[in-house]
Design a protein around this nucleic acid. Structure first.
Length: 592
DNA sequence: GCTTTGTGCCAC
DNA sequence: AAACGTGGCACAAAGC
């Protein structure tokens, strides 16, 4: 059963049970019609705990998980299932599977303009309203998700739910869309919970990393010791004056030109290919400068509180359905600082990584028996070598990556023909996706997320090449933008379906962890996770679970079972496997 | 002075 | 040098 939460102008919440269908026994339980902010958590808790009948716990249905779930978690209430109307609307509006629906053909509504709200916000960010501590600190008109939409225009979640259910039921692939919406919504729950729990972060360890690399923390506005020493060496190697600022690209390039270094840019890759005394100190400088500016002391000050790094995840923040993050750069945590991620005392980190996820997903989508067989041994690239298609693992790897990214040059281009001969179904699928994009068409993932059509600029480039009066370079612009869009759609089907696999994996992990026994003693994690293993990090094809040490093996087993379950959800009985690398560690840096 | 753009590097 | 997908972010320079 869906239980819809809707804000009322009076500041209360309307709680409405909506049965899933004509199923006997799925009658609405006695749902209160009205709740206040103070009693909503207990209302939710009570319905969540009701006798688990055949229909399962309610599917909490709300406009935006980010607006409701943080306060419930703060009250210690976890929900099992949700339906995020904002996220679901976006999928259904654009999916080719639901293109004929009333939802997809209706004129734009407020549901199209609701923007993603980062989870949390415990750390103040300039220009962003702080997250409400309780459900009603902000009224509807002020809620950030609505960007100032007056409450009188507040969209009706009941009507929207109805439109969404019609769109799914009348679609070409209702089962897949239903799974996608459930997985996307479960992802929203996970994202909120991970923000709530935070990634365990030892500021003292991080500080030691920084001090070791850069020297002691400098006074405000001063360069760290080791960075300053390298700046001196750079100036000496270039015979440059003390005024040369290595942070200034134009200054540095000019000084390098004068010294005859022969660099056209300051990119690491180019510098590494040059031979000059300035190269070594300059590369070292850039390396440390990056650490200092991106993950230095000010990052630590801004993002780590009370032993936790709390990131803002944006579910569906990437067109393909991947998550993005905002603030703190959670999805780009450099390897060099990961040793600051430490389990609490008596707890461990279970780090799991899906091996060669994208080519496996491709094999499943293409129903490619040969590729699936290559993946059965655990290392898909080794399996490709064993099949005889190519000679080395490296060839298999760059060849597959090239096929999925649209690479044509170098080593990947070289082995592509051989991979196409050995795995015609997989290669054919990505080639078809590329050709569709080149024509300006859209492509769709396994579960139904559809790529956006190219924009006006792309259309203009294509039509600009037509006609006798077209400028000479118009044809090449048209061709290059067509190819570029083809690379996008080629990658979209694979990356997007991999993101769907990952959402199903996350959802399954989350449910399985909750079913594990609780720890004897509560740890430092906040309720409701103090005595339970819980997800603390997710990065496209990798998760970190923070778990009581005694449960480590159970967690590892469930995380593997969840990967198998995700594979079955997407690809049914097709025999493509999704093996994981799983490590139980104290420090995230020790996982690989 | 503020905002936008360009550069470069991090993650998968 | 770039090539070959998706992103975020910090900084300096350029633009208004």
């Amino acid at each position: 059963m869906h239980v819809v939460l809707a804000r009322r102008p009076a500041g209360t919440v309307r709680v409405v049970g909506v049965p899933d269908g004509a199923t006997a026994g799925d009658d609405a339980p006695s749902v209160p019609q009205e709740a206040t902010g103070d009693d909503l958590p207990s209302v939710v808790q009570r319905l969540e705990r009701r006798d688990p009948g055949a229909a399962g716990p309610p599917r909490w249905t709300w406009d935006d998980t980010n607006c409701w779930y943080p306060a419930l978690l703060t009250a210690g209430v976890r929900v099992e299932r949700a339906h995020d109307l904002r996220l679901a609307h976006r999928v259904l509006r654009y999916s080719t599977a639901s293109a004929a629906s009333a939802l997809a053909t209706a004129p734009p509504s407020p549901w199209d303009t609701l923007t993603a709200v980062p989870v949390g916000g415990s750390v103040p960010v300039p220009g962003r309203r702080p997250q409400a501590e309780s459900l009603f600190d902000l009224d509807v008109a002020e809620r950030p998700a609505h960007g100032g939409t007056p409450s009188s225009d507040a969209p009706d979640p009941l009507a929207e739910l109805s439109a969404q259910r019609d769109a799914v039921a009348g679609s070409q692939t209702p089962g897949r869309l239903r799974l996608l919406l459930a997985a996307e919504s479960a992802g929203a729950l996970v994202a909120t919970e991970m923000h709530h729990a935070g990634l365990p972060w030892r500021a003292d360890v991080h500080d030691a990393i920084l001090a070791d690399a850069l020297g002691p923390r400098p006074a405000e506005g001063r360069r760290p010791q080791k960075l300053e020493a390298l700046a001196v060496r750079i100036r000496a190697a270039l015979d440059a004056p003390p005024t040369l600022n290595p942070d200034s690209h134009p200054d540095l390039l000019r000084a390098m030109e004068y010294a005859g270094v022969g660099a056209r840019s300051l990119r690491k890759g180019e510098l590494e290919s040059l031979d000059h005394p300035v190269i070594a100190p300059l590369l070292a400088y850039k390396n440390l400068y990056r650490l200092y500016t991106a993950n230095g002391w000010s990052w630590l000050d801004q993002w780590v509180r009370d032993g936790r790094f709390r990131s803002d995840y944006v579910v569906g923040g990437v067109v393909t359905g991947r998550w993005s993050s905002t603030g703190g750069g959670a999805l780009q945590l450099p390897k060099g600082v990961r040793s600051a991620v430490r389990a609490d005392p008596g707890w461990v980190l279970v780090v799991a990584d899906a091996a060669q996820l994208e080519p496996r997903v491709l094999a499943g989508m293409a129903a490619d028996e040969a590729m699936a067989a290559a993946g059965r041994g655990g290392d898909l690239y080794a399996g490709i070598v064993a099949s005889g298609a190519v000679e080395t693992r490296e060839q298999a790897k760059v060849g597959m990556l090239g096929a999925m990214y649209g690479g044509t040059t170098g080593a990947s281009g070289q082995v592509l023909p051989r991979l196409s001969r050995a795995f015609p179904r997989s290669m054919g699928l990505v080639e078809d996706a590329a050709r569709t994009g080149e024509r300006g068409g859209v492509v769709t993932t396994r579960l139904g997320r559809t790529s956006p059509p190219p924009g006006q600029e792309w259309d203009a480039a294509q039509s600009g090449a037509l006609g006798d009066g077209a400028p000479p370079d118009a044809a090449s612009l048209a061709r290059s933008s067509a190819r570029s869009w083809g690379r996008f759609t080629r990658n979209f089907v694979v990356q997007g379906t991999a993101a769907e696999w990952a959402l199903c994996w996350l959802a399954s992990i989350r449910r399985r962890l909750w079913e594990l026994p609780r720890a004897q003693d509560p740890g430092l994690a906040p309720a409701p996770f103090a005595d339970r293993p819980h997800l603390v990090f997710f990065l496209h094809d990798e998760v970190v679970v923070h778990a009581p040490a005694a449960l480590a093996d159970d967690v590892a087993r469930e995380v593997r079972a969840a990967a198998d379950e995700a594979g079955r959800l997407l690809f049914g009985d097709f025999p493509v496997s999704f093996p994981l690398t799983v490590a139980t560690v104290d420090s995230y840096a020790d996982a690989k």
